[in-house]
Design a protein around this nucleic acid. Structure first.
Lengths: 225, 225
DNA sequence: GTCTCAGAAGTTGCATACAATTAACTTCCG
DNA sequence: CGGAAGTTAATTGTATGCAACTTCTGAGAC
């Protein structure tokens, strides 16, 4: 993210951007429960801006599927369930391995940064208090970077549009330790496969990676529901 | 289309919806050239509404990737080229066969309607003056219906979001007659494969279908550029 | 002739006011 | 007591006005 480096000029503009980021963060952090109504007036007051930029933010969130919009009634936070998770991981298990395959032979993958990210993620869980938020952030960057190496400029955004599900954000907290270790190992193996330019290997590792995550999360959801 | 708008739920008010549909149609029909700036004031005057709903429509088109937005500068019609087509068909050739495979065994596919659509498309090109616009419309519905049978509710929208490229709208006009006939035959074969519940067959036919279309369009684009 | 820098024009971003629609409540009738 | 219609409150949709930003133009200096 951090597209249009935001806080550059705090003085003007970016009211809509500000509103967008705040509401998005509230939804992804679970602060806003699924089904909750988001009133334009309340958000505007709380942000100290008018309804106009708030409406813009809500429309953007609607397009991204984080909220549900009903004409003349407003927007409410999208509610997710286990079948949504299945749909998403089902899609990922097709698209990500495919993108990874392309990245293996395109020569576009930023292997240096990928390797660095893999090591940073190791460090995140090395200490006694693992920084899971940072791990999530790094993991997202890792996956996006792989997909950007596919040479298909639409692929990263396409996957990002379905991965933005609240549960996924808190994903690593549900991982059992051995699953976490396996996931981190996958990242390193992925870098190795990409470095070797072995498309089959790369595709295979990513497929394992996604399906392992799917399994871990499914169990985590079942356990808490 | 003009039925109780399916976009009504995901859409906006009446004026905003009107503006959205108009500008979208203008872009997809090629009336608005790629790179052309779309001024809020002009569109508002032309539509007889204020800038507010126009802005909303433009934001929606931005989210769909049909226009490009620059802060404090406005929006301009997205410009497409051959590599965009390659990216799109590359994605389709992965996702659509996969969705088709799922539809073959899910039992959710509306085989009756699919068969009817396939025959309607035949009728479109049977006469001396083929109705290519109607053919395009029916073809879109056919593909969407197949994907809706996959059981993955996100898949149809995901593919729709990348297929919305102007060139694709005028696609059949570039088809040589034999390619057109082959495409229509694919539809019938697809229905047969889905009816048989043969996942491999269905996936394979859809793969052929997409790649044949890719080839036809690539040649058509090369010939005209 | 070219570069720089005011100044003006045009466009977008936001705030406010009003209209339209929806939901809730009260009241009246059976 | 139950139900229905009218009315009121709350919320969204649209219009308008103003401020901020960008771009273009043109005069002046080198």
């Amino acid at each position: 993210m951090t597209e249009t480096s935001p806080a550059a000029e705090a003085g003007t503009g970016a009211a809509a951007d500000h509103a967008y980021r705040l509401v998005r963060e509230q939804i992804l952090s679970g602060q806003r429960v699924g089904g909750e109504w988001l009133r334009e007036g309340d958000l505007a007051d709380h942000l100290g801006v008018s309804r106009t930029p708030v409406r813009e933010a809500l429309r953007r969130l609607t397009a991204e599927g984080l909220v549900r919009y009903e004409r003349n009634r407003g927007v409410q936070v999208q509610a997710w369930n286990a079948s949504d998770l299945d749909e998403i991981f089902s899609l990922r298990s097709v698209l990500e391995p495919w993108g990874c395959r392309l990245a293996a032979t395109s020569g576009l993958a930023d292997l240096t940064t990928l390797d660095a990210l893999a090591h940073e993620m190791d460090a995140c869980v090395a200490g006694r208090s693992p920084d899971l938020d940072r791990l999530t952030e790094l993991n997202n960057r890792f996956h996006r970077l792989v997909l950007e190496g596919s040479g298909n400029s639409r692929l990263p955004g396409l996957i990002a549009s379905v991965v933005q599900v609240p549960l996924v954000w808190r994903t690593f907290s549900r991982y059992p330790p051995e699953a976490l270790a396996r996931s981190l190992a996958h990242h390193h193996e992925l870098v190795a496969a990409l470095t070797a330019g072995d498309a089959d290997w790369a595709e295979s590792v990513m497929c394992s990676h996604v399906r392992a995550a799917w399994s871990s999360i499914r169990e985590g959801v079942q356990a808490t529901s």
